[in-house]
Simulated scan of single mutants.
Amino acid sequence: MGIVLYKDGKIEKNKRYKEIKSGDAVLYLTDVYEDMFTKRSSNINFSRDIEIKDKNKIVINMPYVDELNKKRVEAVLEDGLVSLYFKEKGFIEFIEEKISRNKEIDYKTVFLSLFQFLMLSYDQKLIKLEDDVEIRFEDAVAKDSIQLESLLKDKKKIYMIKRCTNYYKSILVYLEDEFNDIKLYDKLFFSFQDTLNLAENVESSIYSCIDIYNSIYSNRMNKTMELLTFITVMLLPASILSGIFGMNFKFMPLLDHPQGFYITVAVMMSAVAFGIIYFFTNRKRR
């Protein structure tokens, strides 16, 4: 079951492909597989994703990005009708709006409008990502903390959007002979480039956040190493003295002295105290 759109803007819902009778139909949109679809996954491969059976029939199978999931859209262009397997219901409202401005619309324009719709959808995702990254950037500077996992997920989303966008460009270049007479054809390449530029900007912001994360992590490691070094240095005199007096020599200083143990402990504590005072005095100067 799907939605049928006619040139004059009329819409019929809950229709099957076989029930389409009028030659004025330009779009059949469904989210359920029917016989005319290939039912195979997109491979980012022209030899499998684009099939030109003759000048009147083209089958196109391509991916699109929904969050971190790669979904697929399949189009069959035949006899002035675009049969579209696409799960984004907002597309029909998008086409309705175009018809309200242009009065009439043919099946080739409908198909090219699919790419325009995907670019607008990607732009919205990228703008939202940009806002989220900006908030994380401010939090990283103010709170000295950042969520690396969410940044990496956002980076993956951008990579997938860029990959799909470049693939759409390649598809339209490949099908230039079929669509270059449509006004929207050339405009789409500007849309592709705008989306790619926006993706690059957001990706650059993510890299800045990752740099801040690395800086925060390095500072934390430096503080940890500083603490460990301080503890090691403070205990070093005691370790040296205990090591010396742990030697099995018969004659050693203070070995038979009645206050030898206390003198040794006092020397150890004095060395530790001197180290602590020296450390904090120089730290304040810095």
Rank of each mutant, 00 (worst) to 15 (best):
residue 279 F to T: 11
residue 208 S to Y: 07
residue 128 K to G: 01
residue 2 G to T: 13
residue 247 M to W: 00
residue 162 K to V: 05
residue 258 P to Y: 02
residue 63 P to D: 10
residue 127 I to N: 03
residue 169 K to C: 02
residue 183 K to H: 03
residue 279 F to R: 12
residue 106 D to T: 03
residue 61 N to V: 14
residue 83 S to R: 14
residue 194 D to F: 01
residue 106 D to Q: 05
residue 43 N to G: 07
residue 254 L to H: 00
residue 281 T to M: 13
residue 267 V to R: 09
residue 284 K to L: 09
residue 48 R to T: 14
residue 129 L to A: 00
residue 28 Y to E: 10
residue 174 Y to C: 02
residue 278 Y to K: 15
residue 111 F to V: 12
residue 70 K to L: 14
residue 179 F to R: 07
residue 113 S to F: 07
residue 53 K to S: 09
residue 105 I to R: 09
residue 107 Y to L: 08
residue 118 L to D: 04
residue 65 V to A: 14
residue 47 S to P: 01
residue 159 Y to I: 13
residue 51 E to G: 08
residue 151 L to N: 02
residue 82 V to A: 12
residue 37 F to H: 11
residue 9 G to W: 12
residue 87 K to V: 08
residue 251 F to M: 07
residue 220 R to M: 06
residue 9 G to P: 09
residue 18 K to T: 12
residue 209 C to T: 04
residue 262 Y to C: 06
residue 76 V to K: 07
residue 109 T to W: 05
residue 245 F to V: 00
residue 8 D to Y: 15
residue 204 S to A: 14
residue 249 F to Y: 01
residue 131 D to R: 01
residue 9 G to A: 09
residue 190 F to K: 08
residue 125 K to R: 00
residue 246 G to D: 00
residue 20 I to R: 04
residue 232 T to N: 08
residue 127 I to P: 00
residue 13 K to N: 15
residue 40 R to F: 11
residue 12 E to I: 15
residue 200 E to T: 12
residue 14 N to W: 12
residue 194 D to M: 03
residue 85 Y to G: 12
residue 257 H to S: 09
residue 163 R to L: 12
residue 205 S to M: 12
residue 112 L to G: 12
residue 279 F to L: 10
residue 124 Q to C: 02
residue 80 G to E: 14
residue 142 A to K: 02
residue 151 L to I: 04
residue 64 Y to S: 09
residue 178 E to M: 10
residue 282 N to R: 15
residue 110 V to Q: 07
residue 26 V to T: 10
residue 284 K to N: 04
residue 176 E to I: 05
residue 231 I to D: 04
residue 187 K to L: 14
residue 69 N to F: 14
residue 66 D to L: 15
residue 208 S to H: 07
residue 144 D to E: 06
residue 237 P to I: 05
residue 93 E to G: 11
residue 222 N to D: 12
residue 266 A to Y: 05
residue 222 N to A: 07
residue 202 V to H: 04
residue 42 S to T: 13
residue 192 F to M: 05
residue 118 L to H: 06
residue 195 T to W: 04
residue 55 K to T: 08
residue 168 Y to G: 02
residue 47 S to D: 13
residue 55 K to L: 06
residue 115 F to T: 10
residue 10 K to S: 15
residue 178 E to I: 11
residue 149 E to Q: 04
residue 117 F to H: 05
residue 42 S to G: 07
residue 210 I to Y: 02
residue 59 V to C: 10
residue 155 K to M: 08
residue 96 E to S: 14
residue 90 G to A: 11
residue 168 Y to R: 03
residue 271 A to S: 13
residue 74 E to Q: 13
residue 108 K to H: 07
residue 272 V to N: 05
residue 195 T to V: 13
residue 245 F to N: 00
residue 99 I to N: 04
residue 10 K to G: 09
residue 161 I to H: 04
residue 64 Y to C: 13
residue 121 S to I: 09
residue 153 K to S: 06
residue 2 G to D: 13
residue 44 I to S: 11
residue 261 F to H: 03
residue 251 F to N: 05
residue 123 D to S: 06
residue 175 L to Q: 03
residue 237 P to A: 06
residue 198 L to H: 11
residue 172 L to D: 03
residue 198 L to A: 10
residue 4 V to I: 10
residue 192 F to Y: 05
residue 144 D to W: 01
residue 34 E to M: 15
residue 3 I to R: 14
